[in-house]
Amino acid sequence: MLGTVDRIIDSYGARQEALVQILLDIQHELRWLPRPVLERVAARLELPLNLIYNVTTFYKHFSLVPQGRHSISVCVGTACHVRGASRLLGRVSEALGIKPDETTADEKFTLKTVSCLGCCALGPVMVLDGEYMSNPNSTDIAELIEKCE
């Protein structure tokens, strides 16, 4: 794991101003940012840990907790909202038994909300592992969840 981190840091020449870019690449590869990784980044970039935590808890894309194997996103952009995104989010949340930004206990699903996916004509939209669905009802959602390994 730390080998990956070092490789990414080196690709940016361990420059302090590349901190956010480095963390993005690490997040992309590991899918979350465990504490030893943040300590390594701090040490290699010679930045204090409080700054690293400030940055990683400030930007929404960084996750300090492990993510589920499947990702379900519900768009809560304005267009989807006026077309009933909160009801959709409620249905998904109820079906999974978790709130947004949470992961199921079996680490199977992570539920996220996103703001505008650029396909407002489909709204309200749910995305399961990259597949878009327009306003699924409770039965549709239960079937989709059932299908996931």
């Binding site: 204090p48 840990l49 409080n50 700054l51 935590y53 400030n54 808890t57 400030f58």
Partner: peptide, 14 residues
């Protein structure tokens, strides 16, 4: 941070 250079305290979240 700025006067003592210690970085014991910090902000998290937004």
């Amino acid at each position: 941070r700025d006067v003592k250079g210690a970085n014991v305290l910090g902000f998290i979240g937004r």
